[in-house]
Every structure is written in C-alpha cells, then in structure tokens.
C-alpha cells in the first residue's frame, strides 16, 4: 500500500507542476518558476513562525505571498531599474533564499525545518502522516489530500479560464487588445506556481519541483504542436517519471524525489532523440534524404 501512496503523491505533484509548467515555458518564464521555488523559503519559515506548525494552509499563503513578491521584484528591477532580466532573476531569488536560510538559523530552536528537507523533501514519509477520521478509520495520507486540492484548483482554473491563460501566454499584445488584463493572469499564474511549490515541498522538496515544472512540459513540447495535447502529454510524462522514479529509488536505495527528477531527464532525452516530429534523429533523416 505504501508504494501506491508514494507513487500517487508523486503523480499528483507531477501533474500539477506539469500543467503549470506548460504555461511557464510558453511564456519563456521557466527560470522565473525556478526562482520562485527557491524564493518561497522565507515565506515558509515566517509562516511556520507565525502559526507554530506545519499547517499547510498558512504555509501555502505565506509562500504564495513570497512568490508574488518575487515576481513583482523581478519585474520591478527589470522595468524600473533597467536591470537585464536574467540578472534580475538571479539577484532576487538568491537574496530571498539567503534570507530564508538565515531565518532558519536564527530560529533554529523554534523552526522544525532544515535545508535538506527544503531542498529534497521526503516523499517516503508521506504514508506515515495519515489523516485519521473519528472512529479510527485511516482516510489517506495528508499529502495526498493537500495535493489533490491543489490539483483540482489548478484544473478548475485551467478549465474555466483556458482562453485567457492561453491568449495572454501566446500573444500578450492581442490579449490586451481583447481586453484581458495580462498583469492579472500573469500574477495569478505565478501565485499558483508558488502555492504548488509549497504544497509539494514537503514531498518532493522545493528544488526538485523545478524539475517537474520544466522537464515534462519541455518533453511534451518536443512531441506535439497542439497545446491541449501538450498539457496531456506533459502530465503523462510526469506520472511515468513518478512511477519509474520510485522503483529506481527503491533499487538504488536513494532519494525518491531525486530519482523522479532523473527519470524526467531520461524521458526528455528519449524525446529529444526519437521524437517523430522534432527529434534529432528525424532531423538527421530529413537532411540525409534531401
């Protein structure tokens, strides 16, 4: 049963990240996602200090706020101080991450968090933290409940606002002409990325969230030109990586989250070489025939 819970948690995280990641890489904001996943650290620590527990809701709110602040700061430095955007990203997330680490050291006695946990999480422990109903029935691991809520919210937002999200990603100018607020959808997306990062950080760790945000969508991007199919394929890649990653980790006796990231990389490499539309083999063949 543990295997099932762990793979299910991994898959839920992977699908949530993959869906959001598709929008990120279309917007050329993959690295903003990376930055957010680091920069939420002080938000997590502060939420922990205020609430005194690892209560998921305060954490999601704290980190969601930090994620929005990160997005805002990156744009502020880029637009107002005219700092080149790559440097704006680099300066912002390292600064916030450093503050987070210092906060952890400052309140070491009060905060039951450590850098290891933040970096690579511990998905193997998720089945231990079960939600227990009155009468002693085990419902499901807490992580599964939390991640299901996150995934459902993401699905609802994408389902109801598909057009807005798509148009503002592909063609901001056209979106503005249609009367959509690009800023609103931008910040909504970034807020969702931050919330997902935090909700998943206990299981896969904030840094390996990046792998799930970027790699499955990049893989899907090599396999299709249709955006809806890209959402489906990247979710599928995420699930396959979670399941195969779990068994790789069991076989090697290593970190599960890290193994999932490794499997994501492997799947990407396969698509990169063998994709029937965009793979390098196909390109070579086309060139050989011509």
């Amino acid at each position: 049963m543990n295997d099932f819970w762990i793979i299910l948690t991994g898959s839920l995280v992977a699908i949530s990240c993959a869906l959001l990641g598709c929008f990120l890489i279309l917007r050329r904001m993959a690295l903003v996602g990376d930055a957010i996943s680091h920069a939420v650290l002080p938000g997590i620590v502060l939420a922990f200090l205020f609430s005194g527990s690892r209560d998921s809701l305060t954490m999601v709110i704290g980190a969601g706020l930090l994620g929005l602040i990160t997005t805002f700061l990156i744009e502020f430095f880029h637009k107002k101080a005219k700092l080149q955007s790559d440097a704006a990203i680099g300066v912002t997330f390292t600064w916030l991450f450093a503050i987070g680490v210092v906060l952890i050291s400052l309140f070491a006695g009060k905060v039951d968090l450590d850098q290891d946990c933040v970096l690579y999480g511990e998905i193997a422990y998720t089945p231990l933290d079960m939600i227990i109903l009155e009468g002693g029935y085990l419902l499901a691991p807490k992580a599964i409940v939390v991640m299901s809520c996150v995934l459902i919210s993401i699905l609802l937002v994408i389902y109801f606002f598909y057009k807005e999200l798509l148009v503002t990603s592909f063609d901001p100018g056209y979106a503005t002409a249609l009367g959509f607020s690009t800023a609103f959808w931008h910040y909504l997306l970034m807020g969702m990325v931050s919330a997902t990062t935090v909700a998943s950080f206990e299981s896969v760790g904030a840094i390996l969230v990046v792998a799930l945000l970027i790699v499955p969508p990049a893989t899907a991007y090599l396999l299709t030109d249709n955006f809806k199919r890209m959402l489906l394929i990247s979710s599928g890649v995420g699930v396959v990586a979670s399941a195969s990653g779990y068994y790789l980790a069991v076989w090697m006796d290593g970190s599960i989250a890290a193994a999932i990231a490794t499997m994501c990389g492997l799947l990407f490499a396969l698509a990169f070489v063998f994709s029937p539309t965009h793979g390098i083999l196909k390109r070579k063949l086309v060139r050989a025939i011509n």
Binding site: I25, A30, I207, L208, A218, A261, F272
Partner: peptide
C-alpha cells in the same frame, strides 16, 4: 538542436543534473 528556448534548457539541465546528483548523494 531543438526548438527549446534558452531559459527552458537552463532550467531543465539544472534540475535534472541536480536531481541525479542528489540521487547519487543519497
């Protein structure tokens, strides 16, 4: 060699290499 943009490529390599590193470390 592909249509993947620079930012995605950086994030992709960064996270996969690091993930593999953590796997080896654990």
């Amino acid at each position: 060699k592909s249509r993947i943009k620079e930012d995605t490529a950086i994030g992709l390599i960064l996270s996969v290499f690091f993930g593999f590193g953590i796997l080896l470390l654990t």
